[in-house]
Design a protein around this nucleic acid. Structure first.
Length: 1004
RNA sequence: UGGCCUGUAGCUCAGGUGGUUAGAGCACACGCCUGAUAAGCGUGAGGUCAGUGGUUCGAGUCCACUUAGGCCAACCA
């Protein structure tokens, strides 16, 4: 650095040339003020009827339909709603700009419990009792409640920038929708897929209603526990007799030793299987005892016990070995002995009698193997009352076929009624009560215990404090009780295939994003039991069928010959009055008249449909009936929880009726976690609310978060994450702003591709590459790919490279400069493409930028298509060449950084490095280029010779050496470059020749 | 407890069929510029790829287990 002279700084400050430069000029603010700006843009879109214009401009194009999974019309939006709707909007907007008619019709799910609750709550506040309100009045209030929230949520969705037919959304409570939903159910009835069965449900005696799992909370509760003997009745299972089995067993064991043989000879006859339960009142409902094949059992004999004890000396009990001692302790048994092992095989062959045989419970009680049995607590045997427990029910149903073949009646009784009283299905206890109106323990437990004691079947009793289900509302305990329900067969063949077959086939022909969704949905369909459709509720679409109480025949149904007439009558009524028609006075006569001889034989089903059937039918009443949509949908998108929900019910509904899925593809998103990766919750105070983000930063920031995240998995959100999205946003905005300012000087001149400088061609190539990436990202619903591609391009290729280099030509070159014209043309192309690609991601900002450049009424970037990239822009050879140029450039900037650190230079324009390119290929890449311009130095010297000792080299082994030197000459007062030529034009002594020419053109 | 899924720098993400010192952007630190200025440019420091064990000449990439977390289902009879 010694041979060169320092730039002359003595020259007196001449004039301010900045006014002669083409500096960026723009009103586009650096700071967005999105929270204020976004509502203005929304108002403009409203005013210009953007949605309508979108439909008009895309009329006749191929349709792309994302069918909206309806949110529940209740409550303000949370972050999950925002994620969901923004993702949907990214899809519909990007498809629209890809050239489809991509129409989005939002919908709402309106029926169901939560709304019924809210209305009920309002009643209670007013001191009204739900049961005294006529059902259709309740339904009217539910409808109004839903309507209110639809309005609120619609506004909140729109504020997120979601575009769609918000003026005509669909709802499940429209009269038309209700008519279709009811009609769909009829199709299941007519085709013989619907049947009446029964199932135990959670029931609140206090509220006289069935409760969903979500309505139940587990609280501590003091239960009466009892240990009860089930006498082995010496019945034999299968073809072998009891004695045969014992003798066979003895023969096997005699091989082990004579003692064992003797021990195992002892018969189980007269012994008892002992169960333990916390619900004595379920004993009348007992139909079986469950055991586990994994538990070791033994036959025990009581050898010492108090005189007045329930368990007497000589009693022989079968118990799990792990629990026997505890049971005897509880039973106050002083001493006992283990007589022998009882195998699972033996257990499977015995039958017991009911402990209350003496009261008329004379049926056999079979032993059932079940995985739910453990030997942690109890006795190792589980009292099984299919009327009163989910697992009891399941075990019973799993064995139903086998039990029937053994001559056991598998009918599930109804021992407890709506009010908690025993029925005639509980002989000897009729009128006793399990729970009172107030939710307190009734007299049932004590009656059962007394009866058991009287029958000599009690082993012990106790109390246990444990968690027990309580009603969410009344905080009172609930019970499980068998109730009649309506089901759809999963495994009954209809036209050769079962519903399960059809659903599985449909899953195989559906695309899943991510692919794991397919396995998940598949395994659910493979394993699920029959579909329970009925709910004992008020706010929903009724199962609008009649049942013959004598014969069980259904109307409509396979045996009824005027199904179409019935369906037509129902449809007409529901379309006119809604499903309320079913609950109005005289409905039975109205719908049945003319179809049956004796109306008294027919009962009107008052159950309503599970809301999943409602939403599972949206494809019927939305996609099939709106001419602006199509069936099946291209895509359904929801959270991954909807494998169990909407994807599932839509699949079953459509397969049952149409034989195929209502969608071609399923996209799922994960759940949004707090910043630490844990679940958000009110109590932890780590919630992020979309309303807050919008208020503080704007919807575009929230959208950027959605676009940057890997939504297939769970995502995180929090202050830090939102901040970094704001940073990314600011970078994008400023780059756009610079383009807008620069393009103020662009007169629209198109420069032919062939006339463009290499640098411009290289940028267009990169733009073409990015375009492929962006569109591919959008096509595969991989938005982070589109976003990252655009963001990286703007940061790395444009802001830090192309724009930085071209500022000199754009600001300083004469108006006539070809280079400048070419650059302006390319910047215009860049702006056009980038803003369009960004439009689905940040619709507000993209629109703001678009309008700044293309002002006018009725103008919107959202009416545009993604740019068609000319094939000639793709130029991989040139791109490869410029990769080499950049490689050499990196060596130069690296060298300059040292100079800067050593305070020998400040601006790179103060430098004039000597560059020794020791690789012919790299050297050739620089041929014909103004490498000083590319490195933003004032001068540069490039040679192919070996670099001298001490030259700067990159650590990565790039064969380039750089010897930094200071630029020679005077600093041009206009362009700030340091050149020897400065001063050679007498008319403009303080500027370079290029700048002199520019000034001359300006006539200055 | 079962089904499905996830864990790569402080943050968000890349890392075809296993193969040279694991990448990018942002944030951070330092410096430059002051004609994108509550902006722009450059350089740098950050990773035992959740952990352990295995398969292999070789594993972020394959297998098993463990651990942390998520969704769904179940659950104390």
């Amino acid at each position: 650095m010694t041979e060169t002279s320092a730039p002359s700084s003595e020259a007196a400050p001449t004039r301010d040339y900045s006014a002669t430069l083409n500096l960026p000029e723009t009103e586009f603010p650096m700071r967005a003020g999105l929270p204020q700006k976004e509502p203005q843009l929304l108002a403009r879109w409203d005013e210009m009827q953007l949605y309508k214009r979108l439909r008009e401009t895309s009329k006749g194009r191929e349709k792309f339909v994302l069918h909206d999974g309806p949110p529940y019309a209740n409550g303000h939006l949370h972050i999950g709603h925002a994620l969901n709707k923004i993702l949907k909007d990214l899809i519909t907007r990007s498809r629209q700009m890809m050239g489809y008619d991509s129409n989005y019709v939002p919908g709402w799910d309106c029926h169901g419990l939560p709304i019924e609750w809210k209305v009920e709550e309002e009643y209670r506040a007013k001191g009204k009792n739900k049961d005294e309100v006529p059902i259709n009045e309740l339904r009217r209030e539910c409808r109004a409640y839903a309507q209110k929230w639809i309005g609120i949520q619609a506004e909140e969705f729109r504020r997120l920038g979601v575009e769609g037919d918000f003026a005509n959304p669909y709802t499940t409570m429209d009269f038309f929708s209700e008519a279709v939903i009811a009609g769909e159910l009829l199709k299941f009835a007519v085709s013989g897929q619907l049947y009446r069965g029964s199932k135990p449900v959670m029931w609140s005696v206090v509220e006289k209603t069935a409760l969903a799992e979500a309505e139940v909370e587990y609280q501590d509760y003091q239960s009466d526990t009892i240990w009860v003997k089930f006498p082995v009745t010496r019945e034999f299972g299968g073809n072998t007799t009891w004695l045969d089995r014992i003798q066979e067993r003895s023969r096997q064991l005699s091989k082990i030793g004579p003692d064992a043989a003797i021990e195992h000879n002892e018969s189980l006859a007269g012994a008892s299987v002992v169960i333990w339960t916390t619900t004595p009142w379920t004993i009348p409902g007992n139909r079986a005892v469950s055991y586990s094949k994994k538990i070791a059992y033994g036959l025990y004999k009581v050898t010492e016990a108090p005189e007045d004890n329930w368990v007497k000396v000589g009693d022989r009990l079968i118990l799990a070995d792990a629990l026997a001692e505890g049971v005897f302790k509880q039973a106050k048994v002083v001493a006992f002995e283990r007589r022998r092992t009882v195998t699972a095989e033996e257990l499977s062959s015995i039958r017991c009698g009911h402990p209350l045989q003496n009261l008329g419970y004379t049926f056999d009680v079979p032993m059932l193997a079940g995985d739910h049995v453990t030997d942690d607590t109890g006795t190792g045997f589980v009292h099984t009352a299919p009327s009163h427990g989910r697992e009891d029910f399941e075990v019973w149903m799993d064995h139903a076929h086998e039990l029937t073949s053994r001559g056991i009646d598998t009918t599930i009784p109804f021992p407890v009624d709506d009010d908690g009283f025993y029925t005639k299905d509980a002989p000897g206890f009729e009128g006793k009560r399990v729970l009172t109106d107030k939710g307190e323990k009734g007299d049932a437990n004590q009656a059962v215990i007394d009866a058991l004691a009287a029958a000599g079947r009690m082993v012990a009793r106790g109390r246990l404090k444990h968690t027990y289900p309580h009603s969410w509302r009344s905080k009172k305990p609930v019970i499980f009780r068998n109730t009649p329900q309506w089901f759809v067969y999963m495994d009954r063949s209809v036209d050769g295939l079962t519903l399960r077959d059809k659903a599985l086939a449909a899953i195989d022909s559906t695309d899943f994003y991510p692919p794991a969704g397919q396995t998940r949905l598949r395994s659910m369909i493979e394993n699920r039991p029959d579909w329970v459709l009925s709910r004992q509720r008020a706010w929903g679409v009724p199962i609008a069928v009649f049942r013959n109480v004598e014969t069980g025949q259904l109307l409509p149904g396979p045996q009824f010959d005027r199904n179409d007439d019935y369906a037509a009558r129902l449809k007409e009524a529901f379309e006119a009055e809604g499903a309320d028609a079913w609950f109005a006075d005289g409905a039975k006569e109205r719908f049945l008249a003319g179809f049956v001889d004796n109306m008294d034989h027919w009962e009107q089903v008052r159950d309503i449909l599970d809301v999943w059937f409602d939403s599972g039918s949206t494809h019927e009443f939305v996609l099939k009936h709106r001419p602006d949509l199509k069936w099946p949908a291209d895509v359904y998108l929801e959270g991954s929880d909807q494998h169990r929900g909407w994807f599932h019910s839509s699949l079953l509904e459509s397969c049952g009726v149409n034989g195929r899925a209502p969608y071609n593809a399923v996209v799922t998103h994960g759940f949004t976690m707090a910043e630490d990766g844990r679940k958000m919750s009110k109590s932890l105070g780590n919630q992020v609310l979309p309303q807050d983000v919008i208020k503080q930063s704007g919807a575009d920031i929230l959208r950027l978060w959605v676009a940057s995240t890997d939504y297939w998995e769970d995502q995180r959100i929090g202050k830090k994450i939102l901040d970094s999205n704001s940073d990314a946003y600011r970078k994008i905005r400023n780059t756009i702003r610079w383009m807008l300012g620069t393009l103020k000087h662009y007169d629209g001149t198109v420069v032919a591709y062939a006339d463009l400088p290499e640098l411009e061609k290289a940028m267009l190539h990169k733009l073409a590459e990015v375009g492929v990436d962006v569109v591919e990202g959008y096509t595969t619903y991989d938005f982070k790919r589109s976003f990252a591609s655009v963001l990286n391009f703007m940061n790395i290729d444009l802001s830090a490279f192309y724009f930085d280099i071209r500022k000199d030509a754009l600001y300083c070159d004469p108006k006539s400069s070809i280079k400048r014209k070419a650059s302006l043309y390319v910047v215009a192309q860049l702006f056009d493409a980038l803003v369009k690609w960004l439009a689905p991601l940040i619709p507000f900002t993209a629109e703001e930028a678009w309008l700044d450049r293309n002002p006018g009424e009725g103008v919107s970037v959202h009416l545009e298509l993604f740019p068609a990239i000319p094939a000639e822009w793709t130029n991989p050879d040139l791109a490869a060449k410029w990769d080499k140029v950049k490689k050499v450039r990196r060596a130069v900037t690296g060298a300059l950084e040292i100079e800067r650190r050593e305070k020998r230079i400040g601006s790179s324009l103060e430098a004039a490095p000597a560059v020794y390119v020791e690789d012919a290929d790299l050297l050739a890449a620089l041929d014909g280029l103004d490498f000083a311009e590319i490195c933003i130095t004032s001068q540069i010297e490039v040679t192919g010779s070996a670099s001298p000792e001490g030259a700067f080299r990159l650590e990565d082994g790039t064969p380039v050496g750089v010897v930094p030197k200071l630029a020679v000459g005077k600093k041009c007062a206009r362009s700030w470059r340091i050149l020897p030529e400065v001063g050679t034009d007498p008319a403009y002594p303080d500027v370079s020749l290029r700048d002199a020419a520019a000034l001359r053109e300006l006539g200055l």
